[in-house]
């Protein structure tokens, strides 16, 4: 395995610095929101984490399709990396969302479409990892994983639409603050700036972690191949 390229090293440093700067902006620069005050500060990182989860979801879908077309093992590595990162960041988004929901609308969990879809997506990804675990042959594992990623990539948006349909026809009153839960509180320009900075920061962190995870996957592939050679 080659040592980390210069760009990756720069990204490492940039990620850490940007993360600290984003924390600083959230706590020192962004004003307090009127009704929810401090807990609203979760919003910035919550949205940023969900955003990274989305990026990972899209990256996984693209990698899966490319694998099915090209049959090149390296896209399997990319796909697994994307799935794993998406899984981790959606977990953070779901948990922070619940923590924010508790004081705002009195319950940790509401069956809100976005929250529910994120939870179902996590189930798809866990199923994906279990599927991979049950397969030893690298080629077959890559093929099945790509197929399942594709199925998940198509079904999850449909799931979101169907849950929303379900909710609009049978509205559920979740609390007086339900508009706030959607992130629809009046955002001042400083809040907006903080949110976009957090989004940018987490995008950089996404690229950075994604790269590291792909390198890890390449190393794992190298080890797996050596093991197979040794067995023969």
């Amino acid at each position: 395995m080659k040592p980390q390229p210069i760009v990756l090293k720069v990204l490492n440093v940039a990620s850490v610095l940007l993360f600290l700067a984003a924390l600083g902006m959230v706590f020192l620069y962004a004003p307090l929101e009127a009704t929810m005050n401090y807990v609203q500060k979760i919003f910035y990182f919550h949205v940023a984490n969900a955003w990274v989860g989305m990026l990972g979801f899209i990256a996984a879908a693209v990698a899966g399709v490319v694998y099915l077309i090209k049959h090149d093992q390296k896209w399997d590595i990319v796909e697994l990396a994307a799935v794993e990162i998406s899984l981790v960041f959606f977990i953070i988004a779901i948990v922070t969302g619940s923590i924010w929901a508790r004081p705002s609308w009195g319950a940790y969990w509401t069956w809100e479409p976005r929250l529910t879809t994120a939870a179902i997506l996590e189930m798809v990804y866990i199923a994906y990892l279990l599927l991979r675990q049950g397969l030893d042959d690298p080629d077959r594992r890559a093929r099945f994983s790509a197929v399942y990623t594709l199925i998940g990539a198509i079904s999850v948006p449909i799931t979101f639409m169907s849950i929303r349909l379900f909710r609009t026809i049978h509205p559920v009153v979740i609390g007086t603050n339900s508009t706030a839960s959607q992130g629809n509180f009046d955002m001042t320009s400083k809040m907006l700036a903080t949110m976009f900075f957090a989004l940018f920061t987490f995008s950089v962190i996404f690229v950075n972690l994604f790269w590291h995870r792909i390198r890890l996957g390449q190393l794992a592939q190298q080890v797996e191949q050596l093991k197979l050679e040794e067995l023969q």
């Binding site: 279990l130 599927l131 049950g134 399942y148 998940g152 799931t159 639409m161 169907s162």
Partner: peptide, 16 residues
């Protein structure tokens, strides 16, 4: 494995 793979992706069908 089958129910674990299948259920999360057929949720739209079950809802509808």
């Amino acid at each position: 494995l089958l129910p674990i793979l299948l259920f999360p992706v057929v949720i739209p069908i079950l809802i509808a």
